[in-house]
């Protein structure tokens, strides 16, 4: 989605899209900043419900955090393959990244069901509300990322796909890594610091 400009002034479309992506990610920082600070305000307001120490399972969350972290590695390798125009490799790494993302989401679903069994729901207490809304908001970002990864991988088979246009691998990658760094913060601030 970019206007082709006159060659003389050679505004590079990839550069224009990357500027837009970084601007957008800057804005997303405030989005997650608001959610995380809401959680920090309410982290001890558990009412009669369970507290963070009661429900959090740090070993389990550590593993799923590690999986998301490693998906950034596969993502950057996909980007590297696309730069070298090795599209077979690229598709492989894209699908691997998407699979790691799905695994992370599955872990989140499992975690949520466990918490609900232990009596923590989104309505139990402000702690519950802010925890579930923050983490599922992040999960929605992961889901959107998985969708974009799969669409990019699929589109690369068709003739309509141009490596330099639309949702190219680099933009999807920037988004994906951003979702990962948000989780780095969440893992520390929401999980490790609260038990």
């Amino acid at each position: 989605m970019s206007v082709a400009l006159h060659e003389e002034h050679a505004h590079d479309p990839a550069h224009i899209r990357k500027v837009a992506m970084w601007v957008f990610l800057g804005s997303e920082c405030l989005l997650f900043g608001t959610l995380i600070s809401t959680f920090l305000l309410y982290r001890t307001r558990t009412g009669s419900g369970p507290t963070a120490a009661d429900v959090f399972d740090i070993p389990f969350t550590s593993v799923s955090s590690f999986i998301l972290l490693m998906s950034s590695l596969t993502m950057v390798l996909a980007h590297h393959s696309s730069v070298r125009k090795d599209y077979r490799q690229m598709r492989l790494w894209l699908v691997a990244t998407a699979l790691l993302g799905v695994t992370f989401l599955a872990g989140q679903v499992f975690e949520f069901t466990e918490f609900v069994h232990e009596g923590l729901t989104v309505t139990t207490s402000p702690f519950g509300s802010s925890f579930f809304v923050l983490t599922s908001f992040h999960g929605a970002h992961v889901a959107v990322g998985v969708l974009m990864l799969l669409v990019t991988a699929l589109m690369s088979f068709t003739g309509k796909w141009r490596p330099d246009a639309g949702m190219d691998v680099e933009l999807v990658g920037l988004y994906w890594h951003f979702v990962d760094i948000v989780w780095i913060v969440i893992f520390t601030v929401v999980y490790l610091l609260q038990v």
């Binding site: 550069h15 500027v19 970084w22 800057g26 997303e28 950034s72 950057v76 890594h177 990962d180």
Partner: peptide, 24 residues
């Protein structure tokens, strides 16, 4: 580390870094 290496902010045009840092 993720921002600098995986997102290439260490290696790319400084404009990206500046725009992103405002939010961060």
């Amino acid at each position: 580390i993720v921002v600098g290496w995986f997102m290439h902010l260490r290696f790319d045009a400084p404009m990206y870094r500046r725009l992103f840092l405002i939010g961060v």
